[in-house]
């Protein structure tokens, strides 16, 4: 039952939004802008190559759809758990399970694994960015991959511990 808790599933939502953000970045990378600013005319236009424009519009549609479901899920969680309400404005990550000391324990273990990952991954990606001349798009992809891994490690660890207990 605990596996269906919104806070347990929250990393999956974050991963989905990260993937969508990646596709959005792909859609925007091919965009070219044209600014005409003369005494007779002022215009600004954006042009997208066909593939990128399809990616951008599909991604925008999926993002809006997912956001709507996401907000409904938060609302449902707060109605079902009035003593453990979550807010998008809270500073503490929504995925933290802190109902009791056992949940704090698994949150700590999962967070430690994520910390260990970053301790290695950040210097590694910094070296990659330094050695290779990457475009802004690929740097964004690198950062998104780190974020994706962060939530993946956290989710797998929490799920594993809860599954052992089901």
């Amino acid at each position: 039952m605990m596996k269906k808790d919104f806070r347990v599933q929250y990393p999956l939502w974050q991963m989905a939004f990260i993937v969508l953000f990646g596709f959005m970045a792909f859609g925007l990378k091919g965009a070219t802008s044209e600014l005409v600013n003369t005494s007779d005319e002022f215009s600004y236009s954006l042009q997208f190559p066909p593939l990128e424009s399809v990616a951008l519009f599909v991604t925008l549609f999926l993002t809006l759809l997912l956001l709507a479901i996401f907000f409904m899920k938060i609302s449902k969680h707060n109605k079902q758990n009035p003593t453990q309400r979550i807010s998008l404005l809270q500073i503490r990550p929504l995925e933290y399970l802190e109902q009791d000391e056992g949940m704090v324990h698994i949150t700590r273990i999962a967070s430690q694994k994520v910390y260990t990952f970053f301790a290695w991954a950040l210097p590694f990606i910094a070296v990659i960015f330094l050695v290779f001349e990457l475009s802004r798009f690929w740097m964004i992809v690198g950062i998104l991959l780190l974020a994706l891994m962060q939530y993946f490690i956290y989710y797998i660890e929490v799920r594993k511990r809860l599954e052992d207990e089901e």
Binding site: M2, Q99, D100, E101, G102, M103, H105, I106, R161, L162, D164, E165
Partner: peptide, 11 residues
Amino acid sequence: VTRQTIGFIEK
């Protein structure tokens, strides 16, 4: 506490 926490303690 939650049921899961009792399970963690028992194990």
